[in-house]
């Protein structure tokens, strides 16, 4: 079980939105994390590479900043095995590349633009994620 946290989750969501809007206001860019990570796989020679690397670095140090601000380090629990992380991660990498985006790019930025592609993508990955969890927990697992 995990605790139902509607207020904290909503607050976190508004901060995500604030960052997404800021990236558009300041840099004119969509805040799709898979696209930004994918951009880092190209040659590190441009301004493009530099802002992406800085953005990702900021995300990586965010737990340290939050720890300093609140005095407690965010705790996460990983309820799956290493094979599930490896296979799952690999499929995430393949999927976001062919699908041109993930939860942030399609789910937040795209839906906010009322993009038909993003609506289809978000509906699709939400359904297959739920089906996968149903299969692993209620058909094959448990």
């Amino acid at each position: 079980m995990t605790d139902f946290t509607p207020f904290l989750s909503f607050l976190g969501g508004t901060l995500i939105g604030l960052a997404v809007v800021s990236l558009m206001l300041v840099h004119g860019r969509i805040a799709g994390i898979s696209g930004i990570l994918g951009g880092l796989l190209s040659k590190p020679n441009s301004d493009e590479w530099a802002w992406r690397a800085a953005f990702v670095a900021g995300m990586i140090v965010s737990p340290i900043v939050l720890h300093a601000a609140t005095g407690s380090l965010t705790k996460i629990t990983i309820p799956v095995s290493y094979p599930a992380l490896l296979v799952g991660g690999f499929l995430v990498g393949i999927g976001v590349s062919f699908g041109s985006g993930c939860t942030s790019g399609h789910g937040v930025c795209g839906l906010s633009r009322f993009s038909a592609r993003s609506m289809v993508a978000t509906g699709t990955f939400m359904i297959t994620a739920m089906a996968t969890v149903f299969a692993t927990r209620h058909i094959f697992g448990g």
Binding site: I33, S34, L37, V56, M59, I60, I78, P79, V80, A84, L85, V87, G88, G89, F90, L91, V92, G93, I94, G95, V96, S97, F98, G99, S100, C102, T103, S104, H106, R117, V120, A121, T122, T124, F125, M126, I127, T128, A129, M130, A131, T132, V133, T136
Partner: peptide, 23 residues
């Protein structure tokens, strides 16, 4: 778009990590 998103969802459901959550 559709196939890629479907595969992403399967991976997300297996690992519990999407790219934005992972970083």
């Amino acid at each position: 778009l559709i196939g890629g998103s479907a595969v992403f969802g399967i991976g997300w459901g297996l690992s519990g990590f999407c790219p934005g959550g992972l970083v």
